[in-house]
Design a protein around this nucleic acid. Structure first.
Lengths: 154, 154
DNA sequence: CGCTTGCTTGGAGTGCGCTCCAAGGATCTA
DNA sequence: TAGATCCTTGGAGCGCACTCCAAGCAAGCG
């Protein structure tokens, strides 16, 4: 694997929205990553990256003169954001919708904002559910812990 | 639909572990619910309830003299707990494993506790991820909010 | 030059968690 | 008693998000 050695310099700005926090090695400027490098950075498989492009979840990736994909820092930023959305359980179709809105342009700012606000509400709800679940788990775990201690004492 | 009117009385004790917090209407004592009543209570489909039983996720449900399922309060408690586990994203296979441990008996207390503790760790991790994601969403949303305000002022 | 490794494509396959179907028996309401 | 509604089963089907395959082109190395 020939990873262009990373000199992480911040060039920032994902699409037209402020940059996401950086999570990956990020060589500077005109960095052009192969698909396997991006796979290593993101943890996604090359298959999945191609599939994302096919379904319209990637804003058209640049190509080398021989037709191979060359991903940019912008692409990595976008993938990092998609990774976050994936964690929320958002369906891929909704992410594709968001990607389409970006392709259309600035007149979709309002709709994009609404989409993200809906997502944020969903995430808050998920967090509450999970905290609820933790309470149940705590309860059961302490039951087992107590029962086992008691049996030791027999 | 003929729901036996709910007189929620606490008969408690899910399997051999302390009862989970009650989430459903719960008539008292020897209540025997049909599959569609349980579907209404839990939000699961009758199909799913039968499927749960087939794969071993339900401790054998009682039957009427003609062979129809009659669910007990204990069954509802168990389904409520399964619902919590489902929210954590735990694979059904792992829940089946837990159900099997319960069937075996008290000598599996330790393994059950470990399983639940692993699950709790996973849930805490998920919560942290989601909180991270909320931060990113906040960031992007305020970008859009700011951009739209700015364009109004033009 | 041959070899290996990596990339390309369209399309088929996989695993999970349901979801539904067909055919027949049970139960309820008038 | 008729008719509607609910329940039973095994097995097939579905939607999602990948995941892999085959066949072929391209680049680097001894």
């Amino acid at each position: 694997m020939t990873l262009t050695e990373s000199t992480p310099v911040r060039t920032a700005r994902v699409d037209d929205c402020a940059s996401a926090p950086r999570a990956h090695p990020r060589p500077d400027g005109a960095a052009r990553y192969t698909i396997s490098e991006v796979a290593a950075f993101t943890g996604l498989s090359a298959h999945t990256l191609r599939w994302y492009e096919r379904i319209g979840l990637m804003p058209h990736v640049d190509r080398s003169h021989t037709g191979q994909r060359r991903f940019s820092n912008k692409d990595l930023d976008w993938l990092a954001f998609v990774g976050k959305l994936r964690l929320t359980g958002m369906p891929v179709a909704d992410m594709v919708r968001y990607a389409e809105l970006i392709r259309v342009g600035e007149e979709t700012f309002e709709e994009r904002q609404e989409l993200l606000e809906r997502t944020r509400r969903d995430v808050h709800r998920r967090i509450a559910e999970l905290q609820d679940t933790v309470a149940v788990l705590d309860h059961k775990i302490s039951f087992y812990a107590g029962a086992r201690k008691a049996s030791e004492r027999v």
